[in-house]
Design a protein around this nucleic acid. Structure first.
Lengths: 147, 147
DNA sequence: GTATTTGTTCAAGTTCCCTGAACAACAGGA
DNA sequence: TCCTGTTGTTCAGGGAACTTGAACAAATAC
């Protein structure tokens, strides 16, 4: 106990940490812009908007894509239905299932998010140059592929 | 309602999303390596290890750096004290405060995390080249500075 | 020396996820 | 066709990781 004066082999930079910080910041910005556009959406709800098909998706599909349990996704959907962003319609192909589709209000919210993402991408080009951004994106994709 | 056949102005790439995916993957790897080294540390605990000074830190300092409430940080510290990774010692400079310091076991866990981070950095150099990695890090730092 | 701020802790509540269990509808084989 | 096993959803209960509010002692500021 008490200051073992240990010698640590310590990295100079932690790229993982930098990635986390950058992601958190940009993500917050998207959340805030959507809120500012008049949509009282909670952070967790983005899992729905990111994964839903324009023609509608089943709950199990959404859960699978978001890597979460169907029960958890169900609660997010319940909430967004209550707020008017989604509708559940019967799936004509399977009477057990329901298709979850965006309402007009849901499309508005999605467009607000897309607008902000477009702004961010434009800023990134201005900041890093088109080539620099493309290089970074390629690197990030390589990292994500490894799983 | 029902398939408004809306036209959406949609971004081609979402760099924010790519950043999130890459970060999640690398972070998981660090967590798993620390666990594999025999330290049953929960993800939230990393907020302590990332922010603690070698000479010890106050609870309020840790909370500030981790951008969370002192109460939440207090619970993380309680837990790590119970598990033997931290100690609370009186702060000689202020009798209200306590210095939170790493035990030998705490240093072991920190070194396990550092080892994995070093491995990851080496792999990133192999993957992207030293120059490519440096460029990406510079870009990430610029993004994070903006707050 | 009194008033305000600071550092910590107790208590209660929220968000966001989980597992287990139930039940109806589908799909395959005898 | 009936039986079995799987799939899609939902109800119920619980845990992890935060939050705010309130208390109290010790420091600091006039």
């Amino acid at each position: 106990m008490s200051t073992p004066s240990r010698r640590l082999r310590e990295p100079e930079v932690n790229t993982t940490y930098l990635l986390g910080r950058a992601h958190k910041l940009l993500n917050q910005r998207i959340q805030e812009a959507v809120a500012a556009a008049g949509h009282p959406i909670r952070p967790a709800h983005s899992a729905v908007f990111v994964n839903i098909d324009r023609a509608g998706s089943r709950l199990t599909q959404l859960a699978e894509r978001a890597a979460m349990s169907p029960q958890a996704m169900g609660e997010l959907v319940d909430d967004l239905v209550r707020r008017g962003y989604l509708e559940r319609v019967p799936d004509p192909a399977d009477r057990r299932a329901k298709l979850i589709v965006l309402t007009d209000l849901g499309y508005d919210a999605l467009q607000a998010a897309f607008d902000t993402i477009l702004d961010i991408e434009a800023e990134l080009v201005a900041e890093l140059g088109a080539g620099g951004l493309a290089t970074m994106q390629r690197a990030l994709r390589r990292l994500a592929e490894e799983d």
